[in-house]
Design a protein around this nucleic acid. Structure first.
Lengths: 220, 220
DNA sequence: ATATATTTTTAGGTTAGTCTAAATTTTTTA
DNA sequence: TAAAAAATTTAGACTAACCTAAAAATATAT
């Protein structure tokens, strides 16, 4: 039994909203993320529950079943592999690939994904630093920290982003903040928590709290 | 206004059934090719006509409008480019790519197609020898002949196939008949029109009329 | 040229995924 | 802890793409 484009999207979104602790996801949160109305979400939840893909009790929110988790991770694997393809092979920017990958992720062929993975030489991370599940469905989230957790004087490596919005990514491009960049916290402004950060030992620039909250880094 | 997956398929099929002379296509022929019932075809034809994609008068069959032709050729371009990708980059056999390309051809992004075309270095033909329309929508069918039209003693170049069925393509693989192979007609059997053909100056084998009818060749 | 066969269309119905409006349940607040 | 607010579900409807069965148009054959 195949899952539809729409079903796959629900599972993927439930996975993402659920977080690594597998917390319950609310109908309204899903309505927001799927850009549909709560009533439509309820309909779909009944259907997904019937198929054994989610645990659903009325008014209680949902979590993925093991089966649902498996399906979600497969979709995420495809999405991230296609993003690597688009950036590495076709020359797209990391700010341009989300919507296209959103379509490609639903192409149904196991062998296609595996061959793509081989062609790309088994990438571990997508262009935004998100980990790519392996072919067995193992997805290990690296424990990166948010830049706001770093102290003055610390040097960290830029490893990923939480916000994938094109405008945010373009802003990073203009600031020279790319994956792998070395960020040294020079100063944190008490008042608004904005930071002065030196990029790759070069220019120093101001980063707002809004931006800091969306940068995933690693101590080096 | 975007066209749906289904609409695109109808246009592509009408294009192919219509041939280069743009002949009228019947409802039943479409029902057969789309694997639906004639009544469903009628519904869709009314819709496509309303959108200005086909010329349709009840009971008279359909042809593509200029707009419909444009859309169809775009889909064909995508299909064939993806097939090249699957064979050249991912290592699929020419017998394995049709169904996957059937899905990929509906991914809606102009820029994706153009970047794919660049990545593949502007291929002129797909893995079955079918010509790939250029980005402006020009599709020039090369005037290949069918192998049945070749005479005893002729040497011809294998340029394409009419039948894309995996079983047919696999049969050609086993016979060593690939695109670009040199075929020399040694003998044609009067009775059943089967032929003895020497492949690349090497082994000679028998080819049934059924097979000959589906091989596109060029005098050399 | 009329009767028969074939093709095509119409009529009415189904499913997936969506919607709005109303009803119900849960949560929050006074 | 009862009333108000918020979240969720139910009821009833819509559209796209399909279906079957029946009617109508066209083509074929005597």
């Amino acid at each position: 039994m195949q899952n539809s484009f729409t079903e796959e999207n629900y599972l993927k979104i439930i996975h993402s909203l659920s977080g690594r602790d597998g917390a319950e996801v609310s109908t309204n949160a899903l309505a927001e993320s799927t850009a549909t109305r709560a009533a439509s979400v309820t309909d779909m939840l009944r259907k997904l529950a019937e198929k054994g893909l989610i645990n659903y009790k009325k008014y209680q929110g949902v979590t993925l079943t093991e089966l649902g988790e498996k399906v979600a991770i497969k979709v995420i694997r495809k999405h991230r592999l296609w993003e690597v393809f688009l950036v590495e092979k076709l020359g797209f920017g990391w700010d341009e690939v989300h919507d296209i990958a959103e379509e490609l992720e639903h192409i149904p062929s196991e062998i296609l994904v595996e061959r793509l993975d081989i062609f790309l030489e088994h990438p571990r991370f997508d262009p935004h630093g998100d980990p790519i599940p392996d072919s067995k469905g193992n997805l290990t989230e690296p424990d990166y920290r948010i830049l706001t957790d770093a102290q003055v004087g610390e040097k960290v490596l830029m490893m990923g982003v939480l916000d994938h919005a094109p405008s945010f990514l373009q802003h990073l491009d203009r600031s020279g903040i790319t994956l792998g960049a070395v960020l040294e916290i020079k100063e944190i402004n008490e008042y608004d928590k904005s930071a002065s950060v030196q990029i790759n030992g070069g220019p120093t620039l101001f980063i707002s709290l809004e931006v800091s909250k969306n940068l995933l880094v690693q101590r080096r």
